[in-house]
Structure formats: structure tokens, C-alpha cells
């Protein structure tokens, strides 16, 4: 799209878009192409020689149980994070929307975790859930006789990174749910109340269906957040362990590429991840179209 009334100039528009094109080409397209080429090659760890091997890296990956395990872990982790943070955000937003007084005080008290770096959220939760002196593990041992130990138990470690990741994201979901709820016409709620619908019926029959576009959008955003931005949390708390049980796709790319120096495999993993994200984006764009029909 373009304006009807535009400026005429020969050189200026190129000059204006140049910085954007330069950074995009240098830091996006060039590395992406290099990565793509690298994914078809095998390079020795010193980077001296490389050989073109067609799709060998990809075939190897898709047959590698460790990679498939990592895909499973990533899906579990991102859906777990999305579920916990979206449901908590939704409950809190529904309550905040009901409360007439203190609405804005509540908002102030709920939005700040968004500004906490994922890695710092990791530090805070590591302290809370530490196996030997974390208050949660002491509590679990004392009252439930559960031996909580994320250093040794993969399931516990997964729970820990999900909690650290979801905690930070509650405020993001909260902001969107509150915005979505305020867009619902009061008359709809009042009409339902006149027809005898109680608060819970109204929530599940009116508010929630009308929030479904927001809900779906937040699903996508939370999953993308869990895929990428949680690198810091995993790096601080578990480093992919124990026994690879929290080795998500992005963490594995880092591990194989920078620690293991397996450049070809790491590049192939990046390419596969890129396709995965493009898939998610396409789904999201379809949803955007739906949303337009929905409201208009």
C-alpha cells in the first residue's frame, strides 16, 4: 500500500531505505544463505576443509534419536509454558476486570515481571527450587515426602524451567486479556445477565468465546517466546541437563555449534527450525485474516 499523495524524488527514497536494507542484508540474508549452504556441507572442527554432502546432515538429524527427543522436549516445554502462563494470565485478568476499585493499582502490580530478563528469572527460580536449600524443595520433602531434585531428575528440571519461563510471561498475557475483555460490549454481558446467566456461565459462554482470537494469538506468541527467548533460563538453570532432558532445539543448536563445533549439523538444525517458525507464522497470518472477518 502507498499514499495517494506522495513525494517525487529520484535519490531520496533509496537513501532513506538504505540503512534498513543494509542491516537486513548483512545480518539477515547473508547469514541465512551461509547457514543454508553450511547445512549441505560437512566441515572438520578446525574449519579447514569442507565437503558438499547434499541432504546428509538433514537425514542424519531426522534419524538421530537425540534430535527427535529434543523436538519432543521443545514441544512439551513450549506448550507447558504457554498453558501455565496463559491460564494464570486469563484468571487474573478476569478477576481484575471484575474488580472496580484498584484496577489500575492491580495492573501496576502485575505488569513488571515482563521487564525481568529471562536469565534473571532463571536465577530467582533456581534459588526458590534449589534441591538442597530451595524453599519449595524443603516444603515438598516435608509435607509430601517428594524428593524434589531438578539436578538429577529430568521431569523436575523440566517443571523448573517451565515455571521460570511461565512466571515472566503471565504479565504479557494479562495485558492482552485485559485489553480483549475491555473490547467486549457491556450490553452483551448485561443481556446475558438479564436472561439469568450467572457469572460463570457468562464467562464461559460469552467472554471466553469472544476472547478466542486473543487466546489463539497468545498461544502463538507464547510458543515463539518459549522457543527462543528462554535460552537464558535454560543456560542459567539446567544447561540442557540432566541427561539432555531440557535440551530444547535452540539450546541444541548452541550446544552442537558452539560447544561441539559440529557446524554442518548445527546449520541444518537452524534451517529446520526456520521452517518450523515459518509454518507457525503462516498459521498466524491465516488467523489474522480470520480476526478481520470476526470483528468486521
Amino acid at each position: 500500500m502507498i499514499k495517494r499523495s506522495i513525494f517525487k524524488s529520484r535519490g531520496l527514497p533509496y537513501l532513506l531505505i538504505l540503512p534498513q536494507i543494509l542491516v537486513t542484508v548483512t545480518f539477515f540474508y547473508w547469514p541465512a544463505i551461509k547457514g543454508l549452504l553450511q547445512s549441505f556441507m560437512v566441515t572438520d572442527p578446525f574449519g579447514n576443509r569442507s565437503k558438499f554432502v547434499w541432504f546428509d546432515n538433514f537425514v542424519e538429524l531426522l534419524l538421530d534419536p537425540l534430535y527427535l527427543k529434543s523436538v519432543g522436549i521443545t514441544l512439551m516445554f513450549s506448550f507447558g509454558t504457554a498453558f501455565v502462563s496463559i491460564s494464570l494470565g486469563l484468571i487474573i485478568a478476569a478477576m481484575a476486570n471484575r474488580a472496580l476499585k484498584f484496577k489500575w493499582t492491580m495492573r501496576t502490580m502485575l505488569i513488571w515481571p515482563y521487564a525481568v530478563a529471562p536469565a534473571i528469572s532463571g536465577v530467582l527460580w533456581l534459588f526458590l527450587l534449589h534441591p538442597s536449600f530451595g524453599i519449595v524443595s524443603i516444603f515438598m520433602k516435608k509435607y509430601f515426602q517428594v524428593d524434589w531434585n531438578p539436578v538429577l531428575d529430568g521431569g523436575d528440571a523440566m517443571t523448573m524451567i517451565i515455571m521460570a519461563s511461565a512466571w515472566k510471561e503471565i504479565s504479557y498475557n494479562f495485558v492482552f486479556f485485559v485489553a480483549g475483555m475491555q473490547a467486549i460490549p457491556k450490553s452483551l454481558i448485561e443481556a446475558a445477565a438479564l436472561d439469568g446467566a450467572g457469572p460463570f456461565t457468562r464467562f464461559f459462554r460469552i467472554t471466553l468465546p469472544l476472547l478466542s482470537p486473543t487466546l489463539f494469538f497468545l498461544m502463538v506468541m507464547n510458543i515463539i517466546y518459549a522457543f527462543f527467548e528462554t535460552f537464558g533460563i535454560i543456560h542459567v538453570i539446567t544447561q540442557g541437563g540432566p541427561g539432555g532432558s531440557t535440551n530444547t532445539l535452540v539450546y541444541k543448536i548452541y550446544q552442537d555449534g558452539f560447544v561441539g563445533l559440529n557446524l554442518g549439523s548445527s546449520a541444518a538444525q537452524s534451517v529446520l527450525l526456520m521452517f518450523l517458525i515459518i509454518g507457525i507464522t503462516v498459521i498466524q497470518f491465516k488467523y489474522v485474516e480470520k480476526k478481520v472477518q470476526y470483528t468486521g
Partner: peptide
Amino acid sequence: TLMLPVEVRILPTYEMA
């Protein structure tokens, strides 16, 4: 480039930078 964060192309970007 809208939806592709730096984490996806991290290795080649790092090598180049």
C-alpha cells in the same frame, strides 16, 4: 524477516560478525 529472531541464524551471524 518479521518473525525470524537472531537465535535461528545464530551460528552464521556469529561467524560473520
